[in-house]
Simulated assay, not measured.
Amino acid sequence: MSRTQYLSIAIFSLTLVVFAVLLQQAGYKNVSFLPCPLCVLQRIGFLGIAISCFLAAGLTSFKKLFHSIALLSAVFGAAIAGKQVWLLSHPESSCGIDPLEVWINQFQLAQALPWLFKADGLCSAKLPAIFGLQVPEWSLLWFCVLLLILTFTFFKKAKTKV
């Protein structure tokens, strides 16, 4: 994968996190989108992809290593988003109290950057759909797209110059 492609993926992933923070701060249709523990973990997945792709673009000698980390971040994020989509379709499974929230909010990152990493919402909360999909469904979609791109480009042979 080229440096430009890595940078594009990194900027796209960061844009998704910025959009999530904007939804949290400004809301949508007069509803505040407070992040739940699974939302915070999805943000970490997108940030993992972004940071890994920035590093792969800058440190070409370690490109495969950082590509692998981005790939693992995409798998992690897709698994977390998939769990939240499942919870949205099975709200009776949630007790309303999420022990993961306490655990996540004790991390230094959540205390240092609460606007980005503090979990305040419920994982099974039905919020207004954006273009027909809930935020976790959009997240799952983008994680799957990024996962496919990163997987196919990981195994693609680099063109050698003659």
Results as ranks from 00 to 15, higher is better:
117 F>M: 06
103 W>M: 07
25 Q>C: 06
158 A>C: 12
145 V>N: 06
131 F>M: 14
140 L>E: 04
140 L>C: 11
158 A>G: 13
19 F>T: 06
83 K>E: 08
19 F>N: 06
32 S>H: 11
30 N>R: 14
37 P>K: 05
61 S>G: 13
32 S>A: 11
141 L>G: 09
45 G>T: 02
113 L>R: 02
59 L>H: 11
31 V>I: 14
15 T>R: 07
61 S>I: 14
10 A>C: 09
105 N>A: 13
145 V>E: 10
84 Q>H: 03
79 A>G: 00
82 G>I: 01
62 F>T: 10
93 S>L: 13
5 Q>R: 02
75 V>D: 03
117 F>L: 12
101 E>P: 00
64 K>M: 15
140 L>D: 00
70 A>C: 12
58 G>F: 12
106 Q>G: 07
10 A>E: 07
56 A>K: 01
23 L>S: 13
20 A>T: 10
140 L>R: 01
131 F>A: 15
105 N>Q: 07
68 S>C: 11
49 I>G: 02
72 L>W: 10
31 V>R: 04
27 G>F: 13
85 V>S: 07
16 L>Y: 00
98 D>T: 06
43 R>F: 10
8 S>Q: 05
15 T>K: 08
97 I>Q: 13
85 V>G: 05
65 L>Y: 09
128 P>W: 08
32 S>P: 05
81 A>L: 08
120 D>G: 00
141 L>F: 08
51 I>G: 12
34 L>P: 04
28 Y>Q: 02
20 A>P: 03
46 F>G: 02
100 L>Q: 09
47 L>C: 06
112 A>Y: 10
138 W>I: 06
130 I>Y: 06
35 P>T: 13
3 R>I: 08
116 L>W: 03
31 V>C: 02
135 V>C: 07
35 P>K: 05
123 C>L: 05
153 T>G: 00
113 L>M: 03
43 R>V: 05
22 L>W: 15
38 L>A: 06
35 P>F: 04
153 T>P: 03
61 S>F: 15
137 E>A: 15
23 L>Q: 12
158 A>F: 12
42 Q>K: 10
82 G>R: 02
29 K>G: 06
148 L>C: 11
147 L>R: 06
58 G>L: 12
95 C>S: 10
135 V>P: 02
44 I>V: 14
51 I>R: 05
15 T>W: 14
116 L>D: 03
97 I>N: 11
140 L>S: 00
125 A>R: 10
67 H>R: 09
45 G>C: 05
86 W>H: 12
79 A>N: 01
62 F>A: 09
138 W>A: 06
72 L>G: 04
139 S>D: 08
140 L>T: 02
148 L>K: 08
116 L>A: 03
30 N>E: 15
136 P>R: 04
146 L>N: 01
2 S>C: 05
80 I>F: 01
142 W>C: 03
103 W>D: 08
95 C>F: 11
116 L>Q: 02
75 V>F: 13
162 V>E: 13
119 A>R: 01
55 L>D: 08
119 A>S: 03
34 L>Y: 11
144 C>L: 15
79 A>M: 10
19 F>H: 04
101 E>Y: 00
88 L>I: 09
77 G>R: 00
26 A>Q: 15
159 K>S: 15
43 R>L: 01
118 K>E: 09
10 A>Q: 00
37 P>F: 04
109 L>A: 11
54 F>C: 15
24 Q>S: 15
154 F>I: 07
62 F>L: 08
99 P>G: 07
